[in-house]
């Protein structure tokens, strides 16, 4: 937890320097990601016209995808950690993971919809991945609303951890059900889908670009995550102090 003391009227905070560095790094990382996605990567060979240009959004789509998944994994770990250890640190990790993960989840939706229009000629389909991603984001939006409705910090932490774990159980079922429905989403990394549309193969520069953009998005994720986590820790500290004062 940050220790803030007043020295000669100046605020000193041990996290100030590291976080500022991380912020600058994240800003630079976004510049690098845009450069890599738009200029460094060579054009997809088997596509033409709008599809070829639109394919470049894939790098940002994947960047959001990896970081959103990371956020949701962190939230599951935080939820399980809270139920085992019963300390609010874990709860704050879960909350920050959900909140930052949801932002990147909206990133997946927006980039995916923009990419889908030239490639699939529609913004939206009920493809398994689209369905699962949407439902997962809705579950986490519900999670955030649910947290708002409870006042006691430990009850809130326990109930939202239980909800996160319970809701997480249904995600594979959603994917499976939607998979049996139908699928036109291209499987890029393994497996082949005969009905997939808009598929392309990963060439050498594509693999490198993907690695660069995913790393850059991860740095951005970490910066946002630590800021939110620290903010929640400070909030908890204020609540503690307030409890002491008004007792």
């Amino acid at each position: 937890m940050a220790s803030t003391t007043t020295v000669h009227g100046k605020r000193s905070d041990i996290w100030y320097g590291p976080l500022l560095t991380l912020d600058i790094l994240a800003g630079l990382a976004m510049v690098v990601a845009i450069w890599a996605g738009l200029f460094f990567a060579k054009e997809a060979t088997n596509l033409a016209g709008d599809e070829q240009i639109a394919q470049r959004i894939f790098y940002f789509h994947m960047g959001c995808n990896i970081t959103a998944t990371l956020g949701f994994l962190i939230s599951v770990i935080g939820s399980a950690g809270y139920l085992v250890r019963r300390t609010l640190v874990w709860d704050r990790i879960a909350q920050a993971g959900v909140e930052v993960g949801t932002i990147f989840g909206f990133g997946i939706m927006v980039t995916g919809a923009i990419w889908a229009k030239p490639t699939w000629n529609t913004y939206w389909t009920w493809d398994p991945r689209l369905t699962t991603a949407t439902i997962t984001i809705l579950i986490y939006l519900a999670y955030m609303l649910f947290r708002n409705g409870m006042d006691n910090r430990h009850t809130r932490a326990r109930f939202s951890a239980i909800y996160a774990l319970f809701a997480f159980l249904s995600v594979p079922f959603t994917y499976l059900s939607a998979r049996i429905f139908r699928s036109i989403h291209p499987v890029v990394f393994n497996g082949s889908n005969a009905d997939a549309q808009g598929a392309f193969s990963i060439g050498p520069t594509m693999g490198q670009t993907l690695l660069i953009t995913i790393s850059c998005f991860t740095i951005l994720f970490l910066a946002l995550f630590f800021h939110r986590w620290r903010q929640l820790s400070l909030e908890a500290r204020i609540a503690d102090i307030r409890e002491e004062l008004y007792q």
């Binding site: 609303l145 909800y163 249904s170 059900s177």
Partner: peptide
């Protein structure tokens, strides 16, 4: 049961999980 606005909270929590 113990949260505020439980009548409106329950469907929001429940329906995404019931999608399968």
């Amino acid at each position: 049961a113990n949260s505020r606005a439980r009548e409106s909270m329950l469907p929001v929590l429940l329906l995404p999980v019931m999608v399968p």
